[in-house]
């Protein structure tokens, strides 16, 4: 296999991360916010794996495995929180959760 363009890969990871960040900022549906967080995790893992492949080390892939496990735990807890929010407010709009506002 030929050498992959590492700069383009890192730029792609940055663009994916930026898209996820924009999704978290702009969307008000909490399911889409959780999906955007997943996109950001995935972009970080892509940067890890590309850097590990660039240096020829296995450490990047190890980090991606840790990111996968953390994302699984985060999604489980986050979806349980979304279900409780839906039971409490009958909506998944984050603007409905404003009880801490004075």
């Amino acid at each position: 296999m030929n050498e992959l363009p590492i700069h383009s890969g890192l730029i792609l990871a940055g663009l994916l991360f930026l898209t996820g960040l924009l999704g978290v900022i702009t969307r008000r549906n909490i399911l889409f916010m959780l999906m955007s967080v997943e996109i950001m995790f995935n972009a970080a893992g892509l940067a890890f794996v590309l850097a590990g492949a660039h240096h020829g080390q296995a450490d990047g892939q190890v980090m991606l495995i840790f990111i996968l496990a953390m994302a699984a735990a985060e999604v489980a807890v986050g979806l349980a929180l979304i279900l409780q929010m839906y039971r409490l407010k009958k909506t998944i709009d984050t603007d409905a959760m404003n009880q801490l506002r004075d």
Partner: peptide, 29 residues
């Protein structure tokens, strides 16, 4: 992209765990 950058193991893990398990959790929710 993982597969062509010389990481076939995490490419398989990405499909199995992310696209297989976590997305099913989302669909359930």
């Amino acid at each position: 992209i993982f597969f062509i950058s010389g990481a076939p193991f995490v490419a398989a893990l990405e499909v199995i765990v992310y696209a297989g398990a976590i997305m099913v959790l989302f669909i359930f929710a």
